[in-house]
Write a protein that binds this DNA or RNA. Structure first.
Lengths: 151, 151
DNA sequence: GGTGAAACCGGATACCT
DNA sequence: AGGTATCCGGTTTCACC
């Protein structure tokens, strides 16, 4: 069930934490007009309710040696066999995201590699392990990624 | 220039912060065998070098009232006119990510909306403001998103 | 770059409204 | 549910190696 009542103070807190995950409870309090402990309580509740799923640092993949980003569309080769593709590819570390999608293809992946050769190798592994065909779209430039969308 | 020398302690720190952006310097120290202040220095340096681009909370969009995720492929209608599509759509808040891509289409967007009707409205706004045609792929289910990929 | 100590500030909790 | 007071642990800075 979608426990929908997320009221405006909680939304504000979520928005602030989405754009600065290390903001202190004190600063969140100043921004929302609440005391530190009231904010503290609310954040813990938001974590428990699963509205905050976690916290992460955004890493510069290009500088880290993974300058190549691509989207891989996936279509099962044999429609009669059980489709457990997400399970089969779960341990491939280059895969950042995995969605199932509507349309002519079944899944969409977002992947990161060091070089075109590494991407080629990755595509081979995906095809082998999941018995699928792939269609790859290379990212030329990233304007922005994972901007907070809270309304 | 890509200042490539990111050695193993820094990589470890980046990996830990990518999966827990609120981890304390004390705990990072325990995990890396360094003192709190040494980790502190390293993290500040990683932030300044731009290897850490920021920190964010991961928000549950479905529970927040934005259960619909979609990818929108974009193609300019008039190839002769200046292509400033990313600038023109920058202020549309439903757009979470914007990439330029190789292939038959020019850009790829990831968007979040409350309902199919809101998606329809969003697509209209994108087409109007940027003079483009769109092709939309709806996400049926998200297995995982933004998993840390550090090697 | 690293350590360890000291001052300071934020997080966590108990208690009261 | 929110505020106040308190305690403890984390953050930050600095002198030294």
């Amino acid at each position: 069930m979608t426990d929908s009542a997320v009221e405006s103070t909680d939304r504000k807190i979520l928005q602030l934490l989405a754009s600065d995950g290390r903001m202190s409870f004190t600063d969140l309090g100043k921004a929302t007009g609440l005391s530190t402990s009231a904010v503290h309580q609310r954040v813990k509740r938001l974590e428990q309710r699963g509205l905050i799923q976690g916290y992460g640092a955004t890493v510069n993949h290009a500088e880290l040696g993974l300058p190549l980003t691509a989207f891989v569309s996936i279509r099962p080769i044999d429609p009669s066999q059980p489709d457990d593709c997400p399970d089969r590819i779960r341990d491939i570390t280059e895969i950042e995201s995995c969605w199932s999608v509507a349309g002519t293809e079944a899944y969409l992946l977002k992947v990161r590699t060091a070089t075109p050769a590494a991407l080629e190798d990755l595509l081979g592994r995906i095809r082998n392990v999941a018995n699928v065909s792939t269609r790859t779209t290379i990212v030329l430039s990233t304007y922005y990624e994972n901007r907070p969308v809270t309304d």
